[in-house]
């Protein structure tokens, strides 16, 4: 019984290790989407997509410094095989040094 437990613990540890390795090789950025009274997303992510006056666009890690007014749309955030969608009526996106901040309700 004890051996079984240590075996399963090893498997879990290996899986975690693999996840950490994968995360360290995939370029990421910190994404924060919030309004004055609510934080919608505040985690590490791989990409963020939204729409502005010129059309749809994606932000990936190592993106150039960028500031834009967002049009009403659905923001899509991808982070480690997970996809988060946030419907917005407008806002401001600021990208700098792998940090993306989306200010809503302004």
């Amino acid at each position: 019984m004890i051996e079984e437990k240590t075996e399963s613990a090893k498997v879990i540890e290996e899986a975690k290790q693999k996840q950490v390795e994968a995360a360290s090789t995939t370029p990421t950025m910190h994404i924060k989407v919030y309004s004055p009274f609510k934080v919608y997303f505040d985690e590490i992510g791989e990409s963020i997509s939204a729409i502005n006056a010129t059309g749809p666009f994606d932000i990936l890690p190592r993106h150039h410094n960028f500031m834009t007014l967002l049009s009403p749309c659905e923001i899509i955030i991808r982070s480690f095989k997970r996809e988060e969608k946030i419907r917005i009526s407008g806002g401001l996106m600021h990208v700098k040094a792998d940090r993306v901040t989306v200010f809503l309700d302004i």
């Binding site: 004055p36 502005n52 010129t54 500031m67 007014l69 401001l92 302004i106």
Partner: peptide, 23 residues
Amino acid sequence: RNYIFEPSTFEVVAHLERSMMQI
């Protein structure tokens, strides 16, 4: 020089200015 602004610098700054007053 070091940023890309969309739709334009003026529009982004004007919007930000109004927002600061409101907040």
